[in-house]
Amino acid sequence: MEKVIAALWAAPDQDRDAFNERLRTTLPAALRAAGASTVRINLRDAAVAPAHKLIQQWQDPQQDAVVQFWLPSANGLFRAEADAALAAHSSRFAAWLVAESTIIPNTAHPVPTGERGWGWSQASFISFRPDLSRLDAIKIWHSHHTRVAIDTQANFEYVQNLVVRPLTEGAPGYDAFVEECFPAEAMDDPAAFFDAVGDPAKLQANLATMMDSCGRFIDFTRIDIIPTSQYDC
């Protein structure tokens, strides 16, 4: 089995609520008919509007949704039906083959299939610093930063996806996709995000530690970070 991450764009004049509803209600079945399993959809919707200050943008326009799923093979010879389903539900899409690593599984707030996940999900497309080799960047990310992200944040789900290769022509050159889930309060309360409610000193320490760690391997000029509502379909 291979995991695919796809970024989807709505047409500029498309009603965003209608776009989201169609993704949520008809895309999962279309992907399953194409051989996909474990479909997850991350939607930019009104529920995550309070997190707008956390958006970081490289792509213009920025992606409107993210779809994650598994296929027996992501080889182009066997992916045509899945690509057709994505194309039929968006004005355009980009896809990547990834290697998933679940750092913190969501055991705290399990959600029934088809319902919106508790809290919200920060979907991060990241690129590594150009002055680092890929192996060095991964070493910093896995051997140092992973522990920092666990210790300094109130994330109850944390999944790392290392990009193996792009699957579509012109896909942005990201190196990884990271999904982290937080309580709703963390959308607009830094203390809730950094697990420091009622403790200003801890907030400043956790924020500084996290930013320093990110700066060791991330190229902040080539990242897209979007708040989303998470659906396992």
Results as ranks from 00 to 15, higher is better:
Ala36Arg: 10
Pro28Leu: 10
Asp45His: 06
Lys53Cys: 05
Pro50Met: 09
Val48His: 01
Arg44Leu: 14
Ala33Cys: 09
Lys53Leu: 15
Ile41Leu: 14
Asp45Asn: 14
Ala34Cys: 14
Leu27Lys: 04
Arg44Tyr: 07
Ala46Tyr: 09
Ala30Asn: 08
Arg44His: 05
Thr38Ala: 15
Ala51Met: 00
Leu54Trp: 01
Gly35Asn: 04
Lys53His: 10
Ile41Tyr: 02
Pro50Val: 06
Ala49Ser: 13
Ile41Val: 15
Ala51Asn: 01
Gln57Lys: 05
Ala51Gly: 08
Thr38Pro: 03
Ala33Tyr: 08
Arg44Ser: 04
Asn42Pro: 00
Asn42Gly: 13
Leu43Lys: 01
Gln57Ser: 10
Leu54Phe: 06
Thr38Gly: 13
Lys53Asn: 09
Thr38Glu: 10
Ile55Tyr: 01
Gly35Leu: 08
Pro28Cys: 14
Ala34Tyr: 04
Val39Ala: 09
Asn42Phe: 08
Ala30Thr: 11
Ala47Lys: 03
Ala49Phe: 07
Val48Asn: 00
Gln56Glu: 04
Ala51Trp: 00
Ser37Val: 14
Ala34Gln: 04
Ala36Gly: 07
Gln56Arg: 08
His52Ile: 14
Ala30Gln: 10
Asn42Lys: 02
Ile41Ser: 06
Leu31Phe: 09
Ala33Gly: 11
Pro28Asp: 02
Val48Ala: 03
Ala36Met: 08
Ala49Thr: 15
Ala49Arg: 01
Pro50Tyr: 04
Asn42Glu: 05
Ile55Gly: 00
Ile41Gln: 00
Ile41Glu: 00
Leu43Gln: 01
Ala29Tyr: 04
Pro28Trp: 11
Arg32Leu: 13
Thr38Asn: 10
Val48Ile: 14
Ile41Trp: 03
Leu54Pro: 02
Ile55Pro: 00
Ile55His: 01
Ala33Gln: 12
Gln57Trp: 00
Gln56Trp: 00
Ile55Thr: 01
Arg40Thr: 15
Arg32Asn: 13
Ala29Phe: 07
Gln57Arg: 09
Ser37Pro: 07
Leu31Ile: 14
His52Tyr: 12
Asp45Arg: 03
Asp45Ala: 08
Arg40Asp: 13
Pro28Glu: 01
Val39Glu: 01
Val39His: 04
Thr38Leu: 12
Ala51Arg: 00
Ala47Pro: 02
Gly35Ile: 10
His52Gly: 04
Leu54Asn: 03
Ala49His: 02
Gly35Val: 11
Asp45Tyr: 03
Arg40Met: 15
Arg40Asn: 13
Asn42Thr: 03
Ala34Glu: 03
Ala29Met: 12
Thr38Val: 12
Ala29Gln: 12
Ser37Gln: 12
Val39Pro: 05
Ala47Leu: 11
Ile55Asn: 01
Asp45Lys: 03
Gly35Asp: 07
Ala46His: 12
Leu54Arg: 02
Ala47Ser: 11
Leu43Asp: 04
Pro50Thr: 09
Ala46Pro: 02
Ser37Leu: 07
Ile41Thr: 15
Arg32Phe: 13
Arg40Cys: 15
Pro28Ile: 10
Ala49Trp: 05
Gly35Ser: 09
Ser37Ala: 15
Gln56Gly: 03
Ala47Ile: 14
Ala33Asn: 09
His52Trp: 09
His52Thr: 14
Arg32Met: 15
Ala46Asn: 07
Arg44Met: 04
Val39Arg: 00
Asn42Gln: 02
His52Met: 07
Pro50Cys: 06
Lys53Val: 11
Ala46Thr: 14
Ala30Glu: 11
Ala46Met: 04
Gln56Leu: 08
Val39Tyr: 05
Ala33Val: 09
Gln57Phe: 03
Ser37Cys: 11
Ala29Val: 10
Gly35Glu: 04
